[in-house]
């Protein structure tokens, strides 16, 4: 189980810096590759009560983007995007509710999350989604705290799986695939903040659970994102036991065959010889 800060995620995924980059993607042309490489980006709106329009520069990407909505993953050219989030209808000339420039690195799979800070201010963070292979029979579970709430524990079947998770951090683990009953409690307590909720942790997938909303406004909730296709083949099929099958036909069967042949030949010879005598 690893807990990683959003800072670490940002370091590998998205450099955040307020800037003036225009909407046109600044193509990342590395020294060796002229072609434009792409990244996979999903966007989650996790700011309660605020329908927004999302712009990249002056171009509107997501009109009427409602809280609790997660977009399909989208292939984006790698590069720098100036993301502005406006209250519905106020863009693009008004003052954005959130503004950040995100670097979308080639090959990354990331989720851009508009959410509240622990003390309730709208913000934008990018999380890199772990798409490395998952061992056979396992599922990856990622939990991200993007709610205006204090540190929490995440429990599965009543047992804490992740402890002391703070906004805007994430934690992940590989667990047995299957359905778990999960809830979120205030860290170190049995005070349930969210849930319980049934989570279907599919084998070979990464199930990403966002705890979002606001404790003060009593609208804490879970949102789930699933990324599939990281399954692995099992290490083998141990389908043998004694070696009996490897002996071709067993010695006993061979012996029986031989004995049967001798017996039948003997009987035939005897019967025919007696007939000759009789003739």
């Amino acid at each position: 189980m690893t807990a990683r800060t959003a800072g670490a995620a940002l370091a590998t995924g998205v450099a955040v810096a307020l800037s003036v980059t225009a909407g046109a993607p600044a193509f990342a042309q590395s020294q060796s590759q002229a072609e434009v490489e792409q990244a996979t980006v999903s966007v989650l709106h996790a700011v309660p009560g605020l329908t927004v329009d999302v712009f990249a520069g002056d171009k509107e990407l997501l009109p009427d983007f409602k809280p609790g909505t997660l977009t399909d993953p989208l292939k984006l050219d790698a590069g720098s995007y100036d993301i502005k989030v406006f209250k519905d209808g106020e863009g693009p000339k008004g003052t954005p509710a959130i503004q950040k420039t995100v670097e979308v690195p080639a090959g990354a799979n990331a989720t851009l999350v508009a959410h509240l800070t622990a003390d309730g201010k709208p913000t934008l963070d990018a999380f890199v989604n772990d798409t490395s292979k998952v061992p056979a029979g396992k599922a990856r579970l990622t939990v991200r705290h993007v709610a205006a709430a204090p540190a929490v524990d995440v429990r599965a079947g009543g047992t804490p799986v992740f402890k002391g998770l703070e906004n805007p951090k994430e934690a992940e683990a590989e667990v047995a695939a299957g359905t778990v009953n999960a809830d979120v409690v205030l860290a170190g307590t049995d005070t349930v903040a969210i849930g319980p909720a049934k989570l279907d942790l599919a084998e070979g997938s990464n199930t990403i659970v966002y705890a979002w909303g606001s404790a003060a406004d009593k609208n804490l909730a879970l949102k789930t994102q699933t990324i599939t296709g990281m399954h692995s083949a099992p290490g083998g099929v141990p389908a043998g036991g004694t070696g009996q099958a490897a002996s071709g036909t067993s010695d006993a069967a061979l012996g029986a065959l031989a004995a049967g042949a001798v017996l039948a030949l003997g009987a035939g010879g005897y019967l025919l010889r007696r007939r000759d005598d009789a003739a």
């Binding site: 909407g23 046109a24 993607p25 434009v36 999903s42 966007v43 999302v54 990249a56 171009k59 990407l61 997501l62 009109p63 009427d64 983007f65 409602k66 609790g68 909505t69 997660l70 977009t71 399909d72 993953p73 989208l74 984006l76 050219d77 599919a202 997938s205 789930t224 994102q225 699933t226 990324i227 599939t228």
Partner: peptide, 14 residues
């Protein structure tokens, strides 16, 4: 590109 995100995707992308 340029990107155009679907505005209202299904709740879960599984």
């Amino acid at each position: 590109s340029p990107p155009s995100w679907p505005s209202t995707a299904p709740a879960d992308s599984g």
